[in-house]
């Protein structure tokens, strides 16, 4: 189970495996329809997945393909087909929004405005450590070991960092802004088409 995965207990079993009393039931990480997860399950390039996510037809196609692998996905994930369409829609919305945002920031009309904004932001660390810390934490959000402060130790961390305690006042609960990322275990037996699955990289697709 991935470091970022949230524990989920089935109240009817009280955490016990009904088939093997005394032994705790295995808790599977939830399946999230991220481009990386879809890419692993469907053995498609991430770019191709993102392109498909942008259209209604593309999402329908992805849904159908994923459902063909429902049993395998369920072996390693808490997979809820009833949530899948909405997840694909939400991810597709984000893909489109990101494309528009990046294009807007580089558009000839706004390039100057954004250049000025970026220059300001680069000078933020001294003046606005909270904004800077949040940006960096966003960058780290997918890193497995970062979970210790993204999930449970915010208050302790903030108490040790001058000025950062304000984050709590400003944001109430930072984990609301930076959610734990679920792990994406490879499917059993390698890839779906019997090609060995790659090492899962939870969260951000940061080149290493």
């Amino acid at each position: 189970m991935g470091f970022f995965s949230r524990s989920k207990k089935d109240p009817s079993t009280n955490g016990q495996n009904p088939e093997q009393p005394g032994k705790k039931a295995e808790i599977l990480p939830p399946f999230r329809a991220t481009p990386e997860a879809l890419s692993q399950v469907l053995e498609m390039k991430t770019d191709e997945v993102e392109a498909q996510l942008k259209s209604v037809e593309g999402r329908k196609d992805l849904f159908d393909k994923l459902m063909e692998h429902e049993d395998k996905i369920k072996q390693v994930h808490d997979f809820k087909p009833e949530d899948l369409r909405r997840q694909l829609e939400v991810t597709g919305e984000a893909v489109g929004a990101k494309e528009r945002f990046m294009a807007d920031a580089q558009s000839p009309e706004k390039k100057g405005l954004f250049r000025r904004a970026w220059e300001k932001v680069k000078a933020f660390p001294r003046k606005h450590p909270i904004v800077t810390a949040l940006l960096v934490i966003t960058a780290l959000a997918g890193a497995t070991a970062a979970g210790f402060y993204l999930t449970g130790n915010w208050e302790l961390l903030m108490s040790k960092a001058a000025g950062l305690r304000k984050v709590l006042q400003a944001l109430k609960a930072p984990e609301e802004l930076i959610p734990p990322m679920p792990n994406t275990p490879p499917l059993p037996g390698g890839g779906v088409f019997e090609i060995p699955g790659g090492t899962p990289t939870p969260g951000l697709d940061i080149p290493t």
Binding site: T34, E93, A139, A141, G203, D205
Partner: peptide, 18 residues
């Protein structure tokens, strides 16, 4: 769900951040 989706799309290249 929306935050998770956005985070899943981040592609960073900066060596310092890495």
């Amino acid at each position: 769900e929306r935050r998770t989706a956005r985070l899943s799309l981040v592609r960073l290249h900066d060596q310092k951040l890495l």
